[in-house]
């Protein structure tokens, strides 16, 4: 059975976020997560200012996801922040299921590649 590396895992998370982008932009209020993401050094003050410049919440969250995508720990810490907030925990199920889906696709592809 093929094993996934940290790099592949980071790539899978990125892909899952891209697929969920419309959903996440709709559900997540970017500014609620600034404090947590800054405390964990995922966002800088400049990043949060840049995000806050956007006109709508959808655009703010979209920009925040762009920044998170640059960090391999980005999605993990966003999930922690959602847990921390204690509301909207249903989003975690949605994200982890999507990660699982992408992950299974990758594993299938790796397996197919290995048997060639």
């Amino acid at each position: 059975l093929p094993q996934l590396t940290e790099d592949e895992m980071a790539d899978i998370k990125k892909e899952a976020v891209e697929r969920l982008r419309p959903y996440l932009c709709d559900k997540i209020i970017a500014e609620r997560h600034f404090d947590y993401l800054r405390a964990k050094r995922i966002l800088t003050r400049e990043d949060t200012e840049e995000i806050s410049c956007r006109t709508s919440n959808k655009k703010k969250t979209g920009k925040m996801l762009d920044y998170l995508a640059e960090n391999p720990r980005g999605l993990d810490v966003l999930i922690e922040s959602i847990q921390h907030g204690k509301i909207q925990r249903f989003i975690i199920e949605k994200i982890t299921d999507e990660v699982q889906k992408v992950r299974n696709e990758r594993l299938e592809a790796l397996k197919a590649g290995a048997s060639c």
């Binding site: 094993q3 940290e6 895992m9 999605l75 999930i79 847990q83 975690i92 982890t96 299921d97 699982q100």
Partner: peptide, 16 residues
């Protein structure tokens, strides 16, 4: 507990 299980998928070797 369900949430804890689901979060395992974020680790390369984790399985819900």
């Amino acid at each position: 507990e369900m949430e804890k299980c689901s979060l395992k998928v974020l680790d390369p070797e984790g399985s819900p």
